[in-house]
Amino acid sequence: MSEKSDYWKIDEKLVKHVAKIARVNLTEQEIEKFTKQLENILQAFKELDEVDTSGVEPSFHPQELKNVWREDKVKPWKWDPLENTKHKEKKYFKGPKIV
């Protein structure tokens, strides 16, 4: 994928890989379907990429903001964090094992 010539290419192998790291299970038909759709999406970006943007600063926000922060002051939040979950034990959140 890192090779420049393959940069705009989407194949089933790549879709399977993306599905895997996004933890999405796809059927064979879905893989075929999404490969085509993702190809179309990437095609649209390829067209955008053809616009000459040399000398234009990259933009991160619609509004250019910088250095917005707060001072190091504590204000505890009063709530019951476990109120909305069934997955709890004592005062902990309960979850699947990770490895």
Partner: peptide, 25 residues
């Protein structure tokens, strides 16, 4: 060593606290 967390105002002194006491949305 800060008093509050990085992106919210929850305290950082988690020792001797109830689980999930120092949390917010």
């Amino acid at each position: 060593l800060t008093d509050s967390k990085f992106f919210c105002r929850c305290p950082t002194d988690y020792e001797n606290k109830e689980p999930n006491e120092n949390t917010c949305p």
